[in-house]
Amino acid sequence: MLAKWKLKEVVLMALFSVVFGIVYLLFLHVGNIWAGFIGPIAYEWIFGIWFIVSIICMYIIRKPGAAVISETIAAAIEVLLGNAVGPRLILSGLIQGLGAEAAFAATGYKRFTLPVLMLAGVGSSIFSFAYGYLLGGFSVFHPGYVMLMLGIRIASGALIAGVGGKFVVDGLLATGSLRGYPIARAVKGDARA
């Protein structure tokens, strides 16, 4: 999968994963404490945060695998830094990444517009919710409550991960530091067309 990647793209992805691994961890703590007071639904509002790295990396690098690998590494970093949900989290990362990846794959890795990025966020939401449903034992909750959780998570994924991710990368693009990456090439291509 990585054969076509330039080394600098791999390193960039790894670096973002590390950076966002920390961000994830911070939010996990925030979420944990909040959840202590209002229950597991506390996570749902901010769940999109945990999908953002896959969307950022894919939006910049635009190669198959960027979403799923970055999300998995970020999860692994969370585990390494300790106090996360444990090695199991890597599996969650993988699944969330697959959700985003599925959305990009559906467009043939050709379109990276806002709706596609939001769709990727939704993909992550759905995949991760399905996984959480099995593992987190949500089945003990009332179906209405579960649907509410899912709804909030989807919205969060689309907004925080999709819109937020685009916002971050566009800002970064404007600083000029993404020159030499596929996203910069694509922007230039647009300008010429």
Binding site: L2, L7, V10, M13, A14, S17
Partner: peptide, 9 residues
């Protein structure tokens, strides 16, 4: 490729 990239990161 990934392993060393993570180390660097």
């Amino acid at each position: 490729k990934i392993a060393y990239s993570i180390l660097v990161g």
